[in-house]
């Protein structure tokens, strides 16, 4: 068993990175952390500093200004760290695709580990996506051994 990866997946600390979103996905992320869904059951905690992050939840579409800052913030995270695109905007730019400020999807800026579609995605979808990401990473580690 890969202890390093197991420890990482057992205590995922998430950092919420809002890259010019409409605030809808952000509210849903906060909903996922409320007592009703209780992500602390899985060891998931919201942290305030990107240095503590194990998973970065990015919301919003990357535009000319925010993509530079996004790259800087993600570069400041301690590795290993997953990047998760939350919502249609960060997955595909959604309706802002033809905007004047050159919006682009998140995976054209930084490598992305998981996509959560929806406008906004439900908290259940986010929990499922994180669980699927953990499963996929563990399976990949098992295959390597």
């Amino acid at each position: 068993m890969n202890l390093k990866l197991k420890a990482l997946t057992k205590s995922l600390w998430v950092f919420h990175l809002a890259a010019s979103p409409c605030n809808n996905c952000d509210i849903e992320i906060l909903d996922a952390l409320t007592p009703r869904f209780d992500l602390e059951r899985f060891g998931i905690q919201l942290v305030g500093s990107v240095r503590h992050a194990d998973a970065i939840l990015v919301t919003g579409s990357m535009n000319r200004k925010s993509s530079e800052r996004l790259k800087r913030v993600i570069g400041q995270a301690a590795k290993p760290c997953f990047v998760i695109a939350v919502g249609n905007c960060s997955c595909s730019t959604e309706m802002f695709g033809k905007s004047y400020n050159e919006t682009k999807p998140l995976d054209s800026v930084v490598p992305v580990d998981a996509y959560i579609v929806g406008c906004p995605p439900k908290p259940e979808a986010m929990i499922q996506a994180v669980a699927a990401l953990v499963e996929a990473k563990l399976a990949a580690a098992r295959k390597q051994v």
């Binding site: 420890a7 990482l8 205590s11 194990d54 301690a78 290993p80």
Partner: peptide, 14 residues
């Protein structure tokens, strides 16, 4: 949970 948290922090980059 605290054990996993601590183990994880030991394996992360400083």
């Amino acid at each position: 949970q605290p054990v996993w948290d601590f183990l994880k922090l030991l394996t992360k980059e400083v």
